[in-house]
Every structure is written in C-alpha cells, then in structure tokens.
Nucleic acid binder design. Structure first.
Lengths: 250, 250
DNA sequence: GTTAGTTCTTGATCTACCTCAACGGTGCGG
DNA sequence: CCGCACCGTTGAGGTAGATCAAGAACTAAC
C-alpha cells in the first residue's frame, strides 16, 4: 500500500469542494500547505487531477507553459534534450513537488513519470490570480524556488567535483531521504529510476552506475530487492562517501 | 571608463535620499528595477554601500545570513567548500546581481570579488519588511530566483554532458553576453576569472581550460589581450560548440 | 510455467581529461 | 627600467570512466 493512500482513507467522509485537497497527500509538503480551507476550496475549483502511466509525459520541452502541476503521487524525472540529441536528466520529483512553474512562455524541460502517478493541474493565469488573492502562496513559491536552487547547487558541486562512486552514493542517500520525508516506512525504498536514468542525472554511463551499485553491494552497504527495491544496510558509509569527506579530510 | 559610470554622471544633480539608488547602475537589472522613487527612498535609507578589493570576501560560507547584497559594480564568484577541502565555484555574479538571499540561517556558499567593486548591503529583516510594504519586490525576487534556477539547470546540463571544449566555449559566450546585457561596449570583454576559477566552475583543471582557450585562439575564434582581455572573433563557432550541436546534429 | 522483452551485470579495451613538470609571459613594486 | 611573483602555456605520461560487447536476471504477458 502506498503511504499516501492511508492519509486519503482517513479523510474520507468530508464534504465541500476542498475535499479533494484536504485528502491530497501532497498538502503537507506541496504548494497548498499554508492555505486554509476557504483557499483550498478556491484551488480545488480551479484545478484538475490526472492519472499518468509510467514513462508518460506530463509535458514536453518546448510546449507552451500554460499549466503548473503538483505531482500528487508517484515519481517523475525532468529531462532536457540538446540540439544534437544528447539527453540529460535535470532532476527527479516526488509526491508534493511542483512541476513546470516558469515565467517563460515555454517549458525549458520535459517531465515524464517513472511510476504510475497523479498530477494536479492548474492554469497558469489562474495561479497568478490566486497569488493576488493569497499573497502567502507567492511567498511559498519563493521559498520552494530557493530550496530548489540550493539543491541545484549541490548537484553542480557533485557533477563538478565528485567521483562516480561519490555521486551514486549521494544519489542513493538523497533518494531514501526524499522517501522518508514523504512518510515512507520500512527498510526497502523504491528505485523506479533505471541505471540509464540515474546515469543521465549524474553525468555517468549506465555501466558506471551499475558498477558503483555492485561495488556497494559487495561491500555490504546496500541490498537490492529485484530491480526496483533498495535497502540501505550501512547508511553512514554511503553518507560519508556521498558528502565529500574524501580521504584527505580536513 | 566603466560603462556604469556614464549612467552615474548623467544622474548627477538630483536631490533626495533616493539619489544614490537612482544613480545606481544596477537599477536596470537588479532588485530595485520595479520600484518608484518613494520606494527607492525607503531602500536607500535602509541600505549601506561598501567597496571591496579583488579577492576580498563579501561573506563566507557558514556565516549567519544577516544581510542581502546587491553587487553594484565588479564581478564576484560564489564558492563552496567540501568537508575534505575540495572547492567548487558555483557561479559568477555581475553588477546588478543579488548575493546571499536565502531563507536559511547561514550562507550555504561564500562570495568573493574577482575585481574591485561595490556592494549594496541590506539587513534581511528590513528586506522582509520591505516585502510587506512593496509586494512587487517579492515578485521580483521570485522571477530572479526562477531565472537563476534555469541558469543552474543549464550549468548542470553542461557539467553532465559537455566535453571540456564545449564547456569552455559556453562559458566564454555567456561571459560576453552577461557583459553586453550590462551595456558593455567595444569588442574586448573583461575576463577577471583566472584559469583556475574557470576550471573550478566548469569541473575541469586549469590546464584543460588553458588548452581549450589556446585551441580556440589557434583556430582564430578568439584573441587575448593580456591576461584579462578577451575578444570574440568568431562568436558563431563558439556558440555552435557551446550549445550542444555535436557533429551528429538532429 | 514458458517466453519474450527489458534491464542489469561484468569484462576488455580505449580515450578524454587529469597529473606532474618545466618553461614563458605579464604586470606590479621598487 | 628591472626583478619578482603570479599566471598561463605546453609537453609527457597515467587513470577514471567511456565504449563496445556478451551474457544473466528480472518482469510481465500468455
């Protein structure tokens, strides 16, 4: 059972339009966190929920940026394609994260689901109206944006200065932490990204990612459960490797 | 003569506290762009200007984040140090850019000048008050933040997928464009960053940066004027190389 | 349970970039 | 104008990770 489903079950039986928002598992992390019930009612009236299959696109790079999405369930990757066809994964997004918020007229990157999941779609002009009605919402966007900026800078640091194994270790730990922030229980985490996805995110080939993961497994740091189950047996070692505490530590 | 000085000269003779802001070369790009004279007067009353030497720090990584700075003159680099002493340059900043805006209690990175320059320092709590008085200011921050996020993603793409020469070409072009946006005139751009600075930004060694620059010079794409003068002779070729149009173009 | 497709693993070889090293140019202080 | 320190350039050799290739494990559909 997906952890978000329990929240939804608990909330059943409430009335009103804000219902779907109160029941929304993203509320604790996402955009709507600071809103009261009247405001949620507004949001719910303006937004549409959609279910998406694995590998299905939420939007494509270059599409007119008409909507802003909240990922309410599942995991997605953000990709960017270069003129010559090379592709990079810019980041991964989880339940509660916002997708496609930009002041530009077109999306600068595409977003594709890695798992089955749902998104909450809101017209961009409506969002601007809601900003005027609920200033706290705009502040919320600013805070989220700065947090994302900090995460991007961490990633720049990793891409520029970390070895292959350091990057993979940092990725596995951050994946686990993202799931724990979303109330994940149990020792086994979801790893819906393929080796190729991870490689495109970390600036490595899928073979190098595979070798790093195998190496961690042989050292007893992790255990794999099929292709998409990950258990961290020695998280401290992974954190040590993945946070830049090289041998010549200061 | 620095291009910003001409603006300042033109504005001489105006009265009032906002004087220093109206005369400020950063106004067209920076934080204060959308403010009227009364609001500028507020800002001017709350902010302090400082002059800094080359290699002097604006603030250090880990310092309590008490102030927000606008870089009004000169060029700075943002650096981050890893526990083991490895260092990376997260980005470069120019006149009009904002430094050190974060919701966290400490700066996540340090900022050091590359040239002599000036900053405009504003207490963070004052800024929050100004947000309440001039909501347009908060929106300005959000837009700038999103723009910076887009730039970070470009950089992630470059670090993850670009070869050494592609990264250096992209850097040189973006440096020139940053100076042109700031009303730079003439064919020779400032290159105050050393090969080591550029290397730490691009995830390369200084030798590799030097080899790439030499290679461009030998191809007739650029000309160097001393250690800090850069002329782009064939910008199209640099743009082509630096924007991911590899040989197998789509 | 069988099969077919996808994803992962592991090995061998290659290469872009790093590392180490020496030298040359630039610009500042006397 | 001269000397010194710093920065940049160039070369030779090493290595982490890419590339190419084969086979094994997982997943899902029948």
């Amino acid at each position: 059972m997906h952890p978000l489903d329990s929240t939804r079950a608990l909330m059943d039986g409430l009335g009103g339009e804000a219902d779907v928002c109160l029941k929304c598992g993203s509320r604790s992390i996402g955009l709507c966190a600071p809103l009261d019930i009247a405001a949620l009612d507004d949001m719910a009236g303006e937004s549409e929920r959609h279910t998406l299959d694995p590998r299905e696109a939420v939007f494509h790079q270059g599409d007119p940026a008409r909507y802003v999405y909240t990922l309410t369930e599942g995991m997605a990757r953000l990709t960017r394609v270069l003129p010559d066809g090379r592709q990079a994964v810019i980041g991964f997004r989880f339940a509660g994260d916002i997708l496609g918020f930009t002041p530009a007229t077109e999306y600068a990157f595409g977003a594709e689901m890695l798992t089955r999941g749902t998104v909450c779609r809101l017209d961009r002009r409506r969002l601007e109206q809601l900003f005027r009605r609920y200033p706290v919402l705009e502040r919320r966007f600013l805070d989220l944006c700065i947090k994302e900026l900090a995460a991007s800078q961490d990633h720049i640091l990793a891409l520029g200065r970390f070895s292959a194994e350091e990057r993979v270790a940092a990725f596995l730990v951050s994946l686990a932490e993202a799931q724990e922030r979303r109330k994940h229980v149990g020792p086994v985490f979801d790893l819906p990204a393929t080796r190729a996805d991870i490689g495109e995110f970390l600036g490595l080939t899928l073979e190098t990612v595979s070798r790093a993961i195998s190496s961690f497994r042989k050292r007893g740091w992790i255990r794999l459960h099929g292709h998409s189950g990950l258990e961290l047996l020695d998280r401290q070692s992974l954190i040590g490797l993945g946070s830049g505490e090289g041998s010549d530590a200061a």
